[in-house]
């Protein structure tokens, strides 16, 4: 659904390594020429580490992202909405799988990544630590959260690591349905009864700022951005993407007849962009640290899903062991 690198302080500027300068120079030249790096190619350790962290965080976000929406599956207002939401959630699971596969090509096993998520060591997008309180939130999540995700992911289709770029092509192809179904819910509610319109406005009020935070810390507080841009891991900075998202979304809110909860939001003729108010970064960092309203619940649900499925995995293993034993006897 979405990625931006969290946890940046952990590995700030690249440490001096014992890597061969000629190999590094050849790598930098390939990346600068917009060539793709593939799993068996030589790459600097810091590149591998940064990508492993970014792709696995992205995968975790897709997987955890199923939870706030799953919360509303049994209470969708119609069979049509339920079927659509189910398909969207299934896509998110699929996106997580594409991304785990891409991360595994860098040498970290699936088990290690899942273990890191379930133990609370790994990060996932802060946005999923906010609760989905009512059906309008499902609309707002699709419209804003998936909208922000698309803004982030479109440039990642040209990220320098081949398996990641290819996963993003698949994800982006599927993601625009997610945003449209969310906007469709918002449109229906905004054109519904006054109570429904009020619900849509309330959901926008609660999801607007967290959606802007999805793009990550401001550029001047994002120490790895320069290196990630040079290595073509990222193609646009957090602030550039955030501005793009705001510019694209404001007219959509106007069309819905809803008000964006930012008194400072104003078109700036000179810049050709919307100006917007200050973001509460303290809230963002608190949520990165796992202090979001639902952080504990999300991880508890994730672990429960994994543990409740253990018997299925055990049965599949037993079946395969029996089959292998049989074919050994037959041979």
């Amino acid at each position: 659904m979405y990625t931006t690198e969290l946890d940046k302080t952990a590995t700030a500027p690249t440490p001096i390594s014992g890597e061969d300068p000629a190999l590094i120079a050849a790598f930098e030249a390939r990346v600068a020429a917009d060539e793709f790096i593939e799993p068996k190619d030589w790459m600097p350790e810091a590149y591998r580490r940064t990508l492993t962290r970014q792709i696995s965080q992205h995968a975790h976000s897709e997987i955890v992202g199923m939870l706030p929406e799953g919360n509303w599956l049994t209470r969708a207002p119609s069979l049509k909405r339920k079927a659509i939401l189910l398909a969207k959630i299934q896509d998110e699971g699929g996106h997580g799988l594409y991304l785990y596969c891409a991360a595994e090509t860098l040498g970290t096993s699936r088990q290690q990544m899942i273990e890191a998520l379930h133990s609370g060591r790994a990060k996932y997008s802060t946005i999923f630590n906010y609760p989905t309180l009512n059906w309008a939130d499902i609309g707002a999540v699709g419209w804003l959260v998936d909208g922000a995700a698309i803004m982030n992911q479109v440039p990642l289709q040209r990220t320098s690591y081949g398996p990641y770029a290819r996963a993003m092509v698949r994800v982006c192809k599927e993601e625009s349905f997610h945003q449209r179904q969310g906007f469709d819910i918002m449109l229906t509610m905004a054109n519904g009864s006054p109570e429904q319109k009020a619900m849509a406005q309330d959901a926008l009020n609660r999801w607007w700022w967290p959606s802007l935070m999805m793009f990550g810390p401001p550029d001047d507080n994002s120490p790895n951005t320069a290196q990630s841009i040079r290595w073509r891991i990222k193609r646009e900075t957090n602030d550039e993407l955030r501005q793009k998202f705001i510019d694209a979304t404001v007219p959509q809110a106007e069309l819905l007849g809803l008000t964006i909860p930012d008194p400072d939001l104003k078109w700036n003729e000179e810049r050709g962009h919307y100006d917007f108010g200050a973001i509460e970064w303290d809230e963002f960092y608190a949520i990165v640290r796992g202090e979001g309203p639902t952080a504990k619940e999300r991880l508890k649900d994730r672990r429960a899903a994994w543990n409740d499925g253990a018997w299925v995995r055990a049965a599949a293993d037993a079946h395969e062991a029996k089959r292998a034993a049989r074919s050994a006897v037959a041979a």
């Binding site: 596969c101 699936r110 290819r166 996963a167 599949a316 293993d317 079946h319 395969e320």
Partner: peptide
């Protein structure tokens, strides 16, 4: 892409999904 599975039949099912 790729999938994890204990055997070929499960791999096909996972690949389909």
């Amino acid at each position: 892409g790729s999938v994890h599975a204990p055997d070929a039949e499960m791999a096909l099912r996972h690949a389909r999904d």
